[in-house]
């Protein structure tokens, strides 16, 4: 599967009757890299979960290469090319690393697992370990690798660096950068670590109380320290 253009228009969604995000609209070109920033509780995860079809959508639409997917269930969206690595990683803890990867093959030959090992050599070393025996970073690698094996055209990474040691964060970001450089998938990243997000992304969104409060290029954001302080709560 090749990278797809993602278009989100007027998206409002939440859980049950509660609205969390309102009137979100943006577009990421095929092979592009977007980072979504914002303080805790501003709707970043809800935005990704909504794109992946796992929340209640009230208004708006999501399209992949112009094809509307908002009416599809989560499983159909995944088949349409949407790959979602959730914040909780959701690996299968009683399966080994290799078995976890097998689940993500989606009909591909088992030899495709070597692609995952090439991307994360650490997984190959631990391929016989159970999911429950992995560190947080390894779990993140496994969850990402399992999703990538399905060859998504759009990849959603929800806070992949959360709670990880700096050295693991660097390893993961290097892998994401390598993945992005191939331009075979469009990548969206939710991240609290601003520096990592700025280095990775070509464009940024900042969410504030479920709405887009700022959007632009990384260079524009670094030129506006007051925006960083106001919307992200940190000095730059």
């Amino acid at each position: 599967m090749t990278a797809a253009k993602l278009e989100v228009r007027g998206l409002s969604a939440g859980y049950g009757q509660t609205r969390i995000i309102e009137d979100i609209g943006f577009s990421v070109p095929a092979g592009g890299r977007l980072a979504v920033l914002g303080r805790n509780g501003m709707g970043k995860t809800t935005l990704f979960a909504t794109i992946a079809g796992q929340t209640t959508r009230f208004d708006g639409s999501v399209a992949l290469d112009g094809a509307e997917i908002s009416g599809l269930q989560g499983s159909s969206r995944a088949l349409a090319g949407l790959g979602y690595v959730p914040q909780n990683r959701a690996i299968f803890k009683s399966l080994t690393v290799e078995e976890n990867l097998q689940v993500g093959l989606k009909g591909r030959a088992e030899s495709a697992i070597e692609e995952a090992y090439a991307m994360f050599p650490r997984l190959k070393e631990r391929r016989r370990n159970m999911g429950s025996q992995l560190s947080g970073g390894e779990q993140q690698m496994l969850s990402t690798a399992r999703t990538i094996l399905g060859r998504p055209s759009v990849l959603l990474l929800d806070e992949p660096l959360e709670g990880l040691a700096p050295v693991i964060c660097d390893e993961l970001m290097a892998a994401f950068a390598q993945l992005a450089s191939a331009r075979t998938m469009t990548i969206l990243l939710v991240e609290q670590r601003i520096k990592a997000a700025l280095e990775f992304a070509e464009s940024l969104l900042i969410l504030e109380r479920g709405r887009i409060a700022w959007s632009g290029a990384p260079g524009e954001l670094t030129a506006q320290p007051e925006v960083v302080e106001r919307l992200l709560g940190v000095g730059h």
Binding site: A52, G53, Q54, Q73, G74, S75, S76, R77, A78, L79, Y84, P86, A90, F92, K93, S94, L95, E99, N100, Q102, V103, G104, L105, K106, E110, R146, T147, G150
Partner: peptide
């Protein structure tokens, strides 16, 4: 086999497997 692993994945977390497009 990958099919067998998919079944074990379903046993553990069917919601996640569905979200993966299986």
């Amino acid at each position: 086999s990958p099919f067998g692993m998919l079944c074990r994945g379903i046993k553990q977390d069917p919601v996640r497997v569905r979200a993966m497009g299986a």
